[in-house]
């Protein structure tokens, strides 16, 4: 069935006693203010929690009750294990790897709480785990997190130095610094960062 307003397939349907039937695609339904099903649930949640997800790397994540050390460590915007950036999650609604939950815990916790009607902790089945206690993380998340935070900090410093070098017309030095920035950015963004298969 076609959408009443455009050529897309209609996936949202509304029946009213007075107005009859409406058949719209998700985009047109959102525009018309109709409730759209869970395909967009995550997108809506992200929009509602944009404040916590937009926290800059230099600010501590205040909504992170389970991470008391968060005040000392800057909030991470890139997962140290898989290189997924928080901005990528904002766009797709999908995280990159299990470690993203630890890396972005402060930013994700309010969103998860909202998505699950106020629930903050799992109860129910727990799996057998290879590394001792159930679900012990496979990499030292805290260490990896600190490392990534350090890299992000270093990027800021390097970028500042590039500006200074250019201003002082030290172009060779600026080029070297730029190469260093690129190297770190690639490390942070690579899906194989940390080689999780081994």
């Amino acid at each position: 069935m076609k959408c009443d307003r455009c050529e897309n397939e209609a996936t949202v349907h509304e029946w009213t006693k007075v107005g009859g039937e409406k058949h719209l695609c998700e985009q047109c339904a959102s525009k018309a203010g109709l409730p759209v099903q869970s395909q967009t649930q995550i997108t809506q949640l992200i929009a509602q929690n944009i404040a916590s997800l937009l926290k800059p790397a230099s600010e501590p994540a205040s909504e992170s009750p389970a991470a008391p050390g968060a005040d000392a460590t800057p909030a991470v915007t890139v997962c140290p294990s898989c290189g997924t950036a928080l901005s990528q999650f904002r766009n797709s609604g999908l995280l990159g790897c299990p470690d993203c939950y630890a890396a972005f815990e402060g930013q994700l916790a309010p969103l998860i709480q909202r998505a699950h009607e106020g629930a903050t902790h799992h109860t129910g089945k727990t799996p057998r785990s290879r590394s001792g206690g159930p679900g012990a993380p496979q990499v030292d998340v805290r260490a990896a997190r600190a490392l990534a935070a350090e890299r992000v900090k270093k990027l800021d410093v390097l970028k500042k130095q590039i500006g200074e070098a250019v201003a002082a017309e030290h172009y060779e030095r600026a080029a070297k610094l730029r190469d260093e920035v690129r190297r770190i950015e690639t490390e942070l963004a690579s899906p194989d960062a940390g080689d999780m298969t081994t």
Partner: peptide, 13 residues
């Protein structure tokens, strides 16, 4: 798996 969030999935929902 995480003790706090349970089974970890690509989408937090």
């Amino acid at each position: 798996f995480s003790p706090r969030f349970g089974y970890l999935t690509a989408c937090p929902t």
